[in-house]
Amino acid sequence: MPAARAIRAILTHDGLRLLRDQFLLGASLYVAGCAIALRWLVPWLEAELLRENGFELAPYVPLGVSYFVLINASVITGMLGGFLLLETREERAMQALLVTPTPLSVHLGTLAAVVVTAGFGITVVLSALVGVGIPGWDAVLLSSLLGAPTGFVMALILATAASNKVEAFAVMKLTSIIGLVPVAGSFLPEPLQYAVGIAPPYWACKIWWMAAAGESGWGWLVVPGLLVSAGWIAFLLPRFERAARR
């Protein structure tokens, strides 16, 4: 099957490009570093705050952990995918790809599959690694799956809004706000809180927080979560395709 050959080549060559880029390699290690640090830091901080200030950190731990594990994993995988996509545009290789029989949808589809799979896998592994502030595994798996498309949204934002790596760093600063929106929104009362659901990772985080607090009835959050991610992707894809042809 010709598409299978193209997809194999995309996976192999994107992997090579990632391994040969010190910045991207470092960024992929950052998430793992955060998770390992959290495993030791959270229990220590919890104990210290309670002993020194009488402050009960425990209710806020799932909130913090969800940011560092759930949001960071998908944002960082999205950033890696976005940089690879942007580099393809910046080095004008995109122009050469557009005049081959393999359509752009195969490249974007492969990238989306890799980013979503990696985002999901990394979130699950990191959840096991952190070990604190983690809900039950049913909620971990569902929120990891729901949060993973955020990575592809991030990749498209980065590769569409920026036209070179310098601009990409500025865009990254802006998109990092998207990661903080769900955390900030969690302090709002419901249903006002749902307004921040425009940020794709909110719904995955909400499942995480509810399950960690021992609440039930979070299954329905999958529906708005999927709709928001799909909406962002539908909004960004044609814009990226136009940028790719410039």
């Binding site: 060559h13 490009r17 080095e91 004008r92 290789a93 995109m94 122009q95 050469a96």
Partner: peptide, 12 residues
């Protein structure tokens, strides 16, 4: 098609 400007993956 051979374009005017180079279009390659520089790290490869």
């Amino acid at each position: 098609v051979s374009f005017e400007l180079p279009n390659h993956y520089l790290k490869l």
